[in-house]
Write a protein that binds this DNA or RNA. Structure first.
Length: 837
RNA sequence: GGGCGAGUGGCGGAAUGGCAGACGCGUCGGUCUCAAAAUCCGAUAUCUGUGAGGAUGUGGGGGUUCAAGUCCCCCCUCGCCCACCA
């Protein structure tokens, strides 16, 4: 065995061998229980970054651990390979997006292989491959057939820089999440997925996911934004018709002093046309439309509004209510109209104060002075309380008043209870080339016709022209001109492609049956493997991808294609990899290249460091010196095993084969017993850290401590060969998921013939954990004053007696009055005293 | 404004309510060497003391408990998410 740890030679050797022998191929049929370990698949940007290294190292440790503990593991990889960067590269370098993408995939595949991740490479797939996107198109048509995909004209988010529309989820602070350009509104006819049909169940079923971080669930709840309230109808004065408003506080109905419509509300034009208000209102609307999303919706924006000359009636009080329009009311939410209750809503208060509108209290805090109801307010009171100025409802608790008013309004046909969601339907059309073509044909006589399954995939044409600001597919006549699948007449294809998030909403299902050309996946395969037992990825996908994937799974379940109703049983959201306190990023220039680290120290060191430096959910600060520390540790492991090699080879069959002996370890002396105890404690800790806590950092530190102990142990004259062999072998097995190459090499060097990764995870020998003597801490009034070593089975009384005899204890108890004594067996004695007198 | 996290040595971080700071980094000292690197060994929270020791200490303040980094209440700071959603 070589004295030096030649990581490069070892890693190349084993990576080649694992690939050739298909060492990590998933067994199709197995008597073992299944385990599906999945890391979020990467976008093929060209190079692996440290975030990838962290993501895939975490998932790989879990996959390898599960294999060793007897599971049939599915651990696949693929490429989320449609998307804008490929198209931008096409415009810039005049290379087809496909060429750029496949080149990047090849490079990143090589880099992944250099990390020694245990993927089943036979299941590799890419969303830009026709064999994959055929089924994305099939999904679209299934959703279309079930009324979950539809086209509508709507004001949509438009990114002028990307020349495409965006989903609400892709607009962050009014700007495009990809390029930060301020988004504008455009009225366009676009395809949507009806995710709102699933709003309630997507919300409720979050409770079925105890294995998800609370944070992510809270973000999804927040995003779905369920709100219980009521639509109230206010009849128009002196003309037919009514205004419907949405409110969560009907109990404040008597406090209404005006009604506000969104400027774009259709009723506005109707009410002002031909009146003296028309010109002013139209000018106001024009001004609002000229503002971008940020200026319109920011909380800091000054409230602005205009009386439009009409009135409506408060249905309960009968009062005359002026109708306004204002910038702070959103057309898309609720009914696009709200009732203004300045006394009990901060926005309304601000607005009413600015325009000198009436402010009337209708709720006062319980227990407040009786004349409170007529006092001028300094600000809105938004809490609950006692109802006042509210006719027959006066004196009621506002919660009860709310229910009674809602009942009465419903009884008298003035409104009805309503649940609203913040979640909007998912806009999936993109005016871009490098995506899955929407499989729809437009025919003058048959209208909108889905492409029949046997004609899928609708393949992306190669003869397109890439020009900034234009939809490339529209430039390809060979693509757009087609015949109607229904009547055979002249027809044109839809030229938009799908949002790439559609591709990633079902890829985890395809992995279960990735080469099937007849169906997206068989029911047998998908039901055998789903759900994903452990999903690993960045928290930036908490809303978009994870919500869409849940929606797809539920829709497919309802259509009968899958049994699972949630895709991801357990979710681990890893933290960012930072350098100098901020996330590594190309634009900031604070990047450490995985390839350089692997070149200098090897993949095992890179994996070990990234798992050791922080717990997985937390952000990780990169440290070159920390990497060296891990490299030193692996060298230490190498030398330790090298020194043990002859001993282990000599004793390969010693002890473990002597099954005739009742307890082969019975005659060990104290030092050897202690080493065995350390070994089995380490096995216990590492097993819990990987298996139930996902605390890889503490698992590694446990192994480090243990290696330190082994170094000391091996110098002991009384060291036992079998104890050393047991420890070294177990240590290699426990380290194997983290550092697969070095452990494989050492395992075979010490005389084994089968891969370490095919071995069983070591088991804890409970008997080895038992101690003859224990150290007990002695406290006086909770402060540690001494420690004593006693027999492990000492009685409570004997222990307390002994504790009270210790000189250090006496020093602190002398002359004090004894209060009580607390004993935690095997651990601690606390003597409580107080000053005498 | 609402929601969710987090705050522990010089640094990354450990601690089922029971010895705070494991493990790693860094630093200092030693071993080895002609020398350096590597290796190996030791020290390393703060104050105080020559020393054994003593006191203090997990963002701040209160509380529960024999015992609190950990549980409860209030506050401060930072991070993330949502936000004129009626």
């Amino acid at each position: 065995m070589e004295e030096k740890y030649s990581f490069s030679k070892i890693e190349q050797k084993w990576q080649g061998h694992w690939i050739e022998s298909k060492a990590y191929k998933t067994e199709d049929s197995s008597s073992k229980p299944k385990y599906y370990a999945l890391a979020m698949f990467p976008y093929p940007s060209g190079d692996l970054h440290m975030g990838h290294v962290r993501n895939y190292s975490i998932a790989d440790v879990i996959a390898r651990y599960k294999r060793m503990t007897g599971f049939n593991v599915l651990h696949p990889i693929g490429w989320d390979s449609f998307g804008l960067p490929a198209e931008n590269a096409a415009i810039k370098h005049q290379t087809p997006p496909a060429d750029w993408t496949w080149k990047n995939i090849a490079n990143m595949r090589r880099q992944l292989k250099e990390m020694g991740i245990s993927y089943d490479w036979d299941r590799e797939m890419a969303t830009c491959h026709p064999g994959y996107y055929k089924w994305t198109q099939w999904m679209f048509i299934e959703l279309f057939k079930h009324g979950l995909a539809y086209k509508k004209k709507a004001a949509v988010n438009w990114c002028p820089s990307c020349s495409t529309v965006l989903a609400n989820e892709q607009v962050v602070d009014g700007a495009c999440e990809r390029c930060d350009t301020v988004v504008t509104k455009k009225i366009l006819e676009q395809w949507f997925f009806k995710i709102t049909d699933y709003a309630d169940v997507l919300l409720q079923d979050l409770d079925k996911l105890p294995g998800w971080p609370e944070k992510v669930k809270a973000m999804q709840r927040n995003w779905i934004g369920r709100s219980e309230g009521m639509e109230v109808k206010l009849p128009l004065l002196d003309r037919s018709g009514e205004i419907s408003v949405y409110t969560t506080r009907v109990d404040t109905l008597f406090g209404v002093s005006y009604v506000v419509l969104a400027p774009e509300h259709p009723l506005v034009i109707e009410l002002v046309s031909g009146t003296e208000y028309e010109a002013g209102v139209l000018a106001f609307i024009k001004k609002m439309q000229g503002l971008n999303e940020i200026a319109r919706t920011s909380t800091d924006a000054e409230k602005e509004g205009l009386f439009i000359g009409s009135y409506c009636l408060n249905p309960l009080s009968g009062e005359k209510v002026p109708i306004w329009i204002a910038n702070y009311v959103l057309l898309e939410y609720g009914t696009g109209a709200v009732m203004g209750v300045p006394a009990h809503d901060e926005r309304d208060f601000e607005f009413a104060t600015k325009y000198s509108l009436k402010i009337r209290s209708v709720i006062v805090p319980a227990g407040s002075a009786a004349d409170m109801k007529d006092q001028p307010l300094k600000g809105a009171y938004t809490g609950e309380g006692i109802m006042v100025n509210s006719g027959s409802f006066d004196g009621l608790d506002s919660n009860e008043g709310l229910e009674r008013m809602a009942d009465e309004a419903e009884r008298r046909g003035m409104g009805q209870r309503k649940v609203n969601f913040r979640l909007r339907d998912w806009l999936i059309s993109r005016q871009r080339y490098w995506g899955t073509p929407i499989p729809i044909v437009y025919c003058d006589s048959c209208g909108t016709v889905p492409v029949p399954e046997e004609q899928l995939p609708v393949v992306l044409p190669a003869d397109v022209v890439f020009k900034a600001g234009e939809n490339p597919l529209a430039s390809s006549a060979s693509f757009t001109d087609t015949t109607c699948p229904k009547c055979g007449g002249v027809a044109r294809r839809e030229t938009d492609t799908m949002d790439t998030f559609v591709c990633s909403s079902w890829y985890f299902l395809r992995y279960t049956d990735p080469r099937n050309t007849e169906v997206p996946f068989t029911k047998t395969a998908v039901d055998q493997w789903m759900n994903v037992d452990q999903y690993v990825g960045g928290v930036e996908h908490a809303i978009l991808h994870l919500l869409y994937a849940r929606f797809f799974t539920k829709a497919l379940r309802d259509m009968g294609y899958v049994k699972a109703d949630e895709p991801f049983q357990n979710l681990l959201t890893q933290g960012m990899v930072c350098l100098d306190g901020s996330k590594m990023s190309k634009s900031k220039g604070n990047i450490v290249s995985p390839e350089v680290i692997i070149g200098n120290y090897g993949a095992d060191t890179a994996r070990l460091f990234i798992l050791f430096a922080a717990p997985p959910e937390r952000d990780l600060e990169w440290s070159d010196q920390g990497v060296e520390g891990c490299y030193r540790f692996l060298n230490r492991v190498w030398r330790l095993v090298a020194q043990y090699e002859p001993v282990i080879k000599e004793n390969l069959n010693h002890r473990s084969s002597s099954t005739d002996q009742a307890d082969p370890w019975a005659s060990l002396n104290a030092i050897n017993k202690e080493m065995r105890r350390h070994t089995h404690l380490a096995i216990q800790r590492v097993t819990i850290d990987i298996g139930t806590r996902n605390n890889f950092n503490t698992a590694i530190s446990t192994i480090m401590e243990w290696v330190n102990a082994l170094y000391i142990y091996k110098e002991q004259p009384a060291a036992d060969a079998a104890v050393g062999k047991e420890a070294v072998e177990a240590m290699l097995l426990l380290l194997a998921p983290f550092a697969p190459h070095i452990t494989e090499e050492l395992w075979l060097e010490i005389g084994h013939t089968e891969s370490i990764h095919k071995q069983c995870w070591p088991e804890v020998d409970k008997a080895a954990l038992v101690q003859d003597e224990v150290t007990v801490v002695l406290q006086v009034n909770g402060k540690v004053r001494d420690r004593i070593t006693v027999a492990a089975d000492i009685s409570k009384a004997d222990l307390e007696k002994k504790a009270l005899e210790q000189p250090k204890v006496l020093e602190f108890t002398e002359g004090k009055a004894f209060v009580k004594i607390i004993t935690v067996s095997g651990k601690l004695v606390n003597i409580v005293v107080k000053d005498a007198g």
